[in-house]
Design a protein around this nucleic acid. Sequence first.
RNA 1: CCUCCCUGCUCGUCUGA
Length: 378
Amino acid sequence: SFDRNACLDRISSCRSLSAAKQIHAQVLATHRTLRSDTYVANLLLQMYGKCGSVDDAARVFGWISNRDSFSWVLMLSAFAQNGHLESAKRLFDAMPLWTLAAWNAMLSAYGRNGFIQSAKGIFDKMLERNLISWNALLSAFALAGHLGRAQEIFDAMIEWNVVSLNAMLGIYSRNSQLARAKSLFDKMPERDVISWTTLIAANARHGHTEAARALFDAMPRRDQFSWNSMLSGYIANHNLDKAKIFFDHMPEWSLVSWNTLISGYAQSGHPEEARSVFLEMRERDLVSWNALLDAYALHRKVDEARFVFDTIPERNLVSWTLMINVYAVEGHLEESKYLFQKMPLRDVAAWNAMLSAYARRGLLNHARSVLAAMPERD
RNA sequence: CCUCCCUGCUCGUCUGA
C-alpha cells in the first residue's frame, strides 16, 4: 500500500509547511517501517528544512533509528538554511563522522550566514577539499560583498566548473559589474539555465528590461526560475502592466511567481490588488503572507497588517521585523519594543529596525542601548 | 539503484553615489 515513487515525488515537490505535515502524516500512516527506512526519512527531514521548520526537521532526525551521514548533513543544512548557526555548529561538533560533505556543509553554513572568517577557518582546517569546497568559499566572500577577495579565490582555483563560473556571474551582477558579467558569460565554454537566468536577473535588476527580455527569448531552455526572473524584472522596473501580461502567459506558476506578483502590487501601491492575488492562490507560503503584510505596511494600514500578522500560520524573522516596523512608523514604539523582545530570534535586520525606530524619533538614549546590546556591529 | 554539501527567481531593517 506504500507507493514509494509517488511518495518521493510528493516530498520533493512540497513547498509549504502545511503540505509537508500532511505528507508526513500520510507517509507515517502507510509506511510501517519508515523509522528504519533512512532514505525516506532523510527526505522528510530535508523537506522540513526546506519548508523552514527546524523543529520538525529535528524531530524527524531524532526519531530515525539508523541515522546515516546523509541524515547528519541534512540536519546541519536545515539549521544553516534557517539561520540557526549555533545549532549547526553544535551538530557538526557532535557528528560521529566528518565526511567531506559535512565539512562542506559547515563551510557553507558559515558562508550563507555571513561569517566569512569562520568559513575561511573551516576551509583552512580541511584536510581534503574538492571543487565544492572552493565554490562554497567563493560564494561566502561573494555573499559578503567582497568582490576583490572572491576574485582572488577564483583566480587561485586550479579548476572551475559551471557552478564556479555562475557564482562569478552572480558576484559581478551583485556588484553592478554588468559589463564583466556579460564578458564572462560570452567566454564561458558551456552555459546552463542558471548562467542564462543569472544574467537575465542581473539585467533586470539594473533596469535593463529590454536586454533581459532579449536574453530570455534567446535562451535555449527555460525553467521556472527563468520565467520568474523575467517577471520580477518587469516588476522591479515598475512595468506592472507588462508584468501582468507576462504572468498570464506563463506556462506554469510556482509559489514564487504568485509571490512576485503580490509584492509587485504591494510596491506599486495597490494593497487591494495584492490582497485579491493572495486570495486567488490555492497554496501559500510564508513569503505570500509576508508580502501581503508588506502591502499593508507600506500603506500604513496598521489594523490590516496586524490582522495578517495574527493570522499567519507561522512567522519568521521577516514577519516580525515587518510588524515591528509598522508600529515604529506610527510612533508606537512600545509595541515595537514588545514585539522585538517577544520574537524568538533576532538578526541584523531586526536589530536595525529597532535601532532606527528609536533613532527616527530622536530617542538617542534608547537607540544607544539597543546598539550596546547588539551581538555584532559594523 | 534513488536522498546530503557549491551557483540563478519572490517578502523585512539599515547603508551607499
